[in-house]
Design a protein around this nucleic acid. Structure first.
Lengths: 197, 197
DNA sequence: CTCCTTCACGTCAGTGACTGTCATCCCTAC
DNA sequence: GTAGGGATGACAGTCACTGACGTGAAGGAG
């Protein structure tokens, strides 16, 4: 521990979320966030590359969980099956305590297009990382991209459902259900296409 | 036609793309773009909500093509089949002349994260519009979201392939191939899951 | 104990994206 | 010819973000 109180980034994140939820994202300046925890604007931008990023810090843990899931999945499965395994291992580590926090955070994001843009970008990066991990397993390019992108789509939809007020199931359970729905849908649609030689 | 030369937005777009391709996106100011066609910065921002948007104007035509495709698809098909029809009708209107332009534009986007973010956001909006169109056909919520998101994923991947230097097939052909790959992959993966009652 | 490096922060000045407001001017309609 | 509207210019202002430089405490080396 140095001269300054530790956990600066975390304090800034908490303060930012609170201010965003109260006044709104655009009505809150970076200076206000920083000063609300006794720091300056310059320090805020030393911890976060831009104002939006303060809400998206720590997503690298999620990326790691997915990539690890892909890397440690049993050999022999198809790309989608591997993604299914990664999906389960990544989502089952999601603590229940995070659900309420995620709801507040999402309500802020849902009210600002710029934040939605960043959220989509983070999901896209996640998909890209998963695709890389699949390629490292020897999956071919197109299949890796398709499987990764589909897996992240499933994750995004499942996360949205998990956040709902009436929802009680775990994120992992919801994810499994959504993935199954996608596979069943696609399987049903793939059959008529088989008439082409 | 008023006092001023028509096609202001188009001239700004062309000038912006040229400057972005030459100096780079961040090294080009909105003032420079505007003055390169004899206008002021203020006028630039009257035509485009922000600097990035100058590269993404006109995507509403694509959205319309997809939505129309969904709306006019023959009745009775599953959500994914309807999306497949919309995919074909939307991509078959893509003129070959646009390919070269798209390459240049994409090379600019690929060099700037902020532009990639906007691109993803546009694709997400497109998926959202397609999902709405599916729901209007009576498709249930989850299936509509999944099918729309998958369809846009396919479109995005196919577009990326269409842009490649060595690629000769039409966008519609590539799209059909990518969709088939996704469906076959999913169908193969759905079978082992069928062991659950 | 003293020096010295390092780290986290403060201060300051600057650029550029974006906005609100008001004036201007041409074209059209009447 | 006059009134209105639509597109633009001019101008001032806010805020996100950056680079350069200074500062004080913690921790290690001697």
């Amino acid at each position: 521990m140095g001269r300054w109180a530790p956990g600066t980034a975390e304090r800034l994140q908490r303060a930012a979320l609170e201010l965003f939820a109260t006044r709104g994202f655009e009505q809150t300046t970076a200076t206000e966030i920083a000063e609300s925890v006794g720091l300056t604007e310059r320090t805020f931008f030393r911890h976060f590359s831009d104002k939006r990023e303060v809400l998206f810090h720590g997503q690298n843990l999620l990326v790691q969980a997915f990539v690890d899931g892909v890397a440690t999945a049993p050999p022999g499965g198809s790309a989608i099956e591997v993604v299914g395994v990664a999906l389960q291992s990544a989502t089952s580590t999601f603590p229940e305590e995070r659900r309420q926090y995620s709801r507040l955070r999402q309500s802020v994001i849902d009210q600002n297009p710029a934040l939605q843009e960043r959220e989509r970008h983070k999901l896209a990066s996640l998909a890209s990382a998963v695709a890389d991990a699949l390629r490292a397993r020897g999956v071919d390019d197109l299949a890796a991209t398709l499987a990764a992108e589909s897996g992240i789509t499933v994750f995004g939809i499942a996360f949205g459902l998990w956040i709902r007020a009436s929802e009680r199931r775990s994120l992992a359970d919801i994810t499994a259900a959504v993935l199954r729905e996608l596979l069943d849908m696609a399987a049903a649609a793939a059959v008529p296409g088989a008439e082409r030689p």
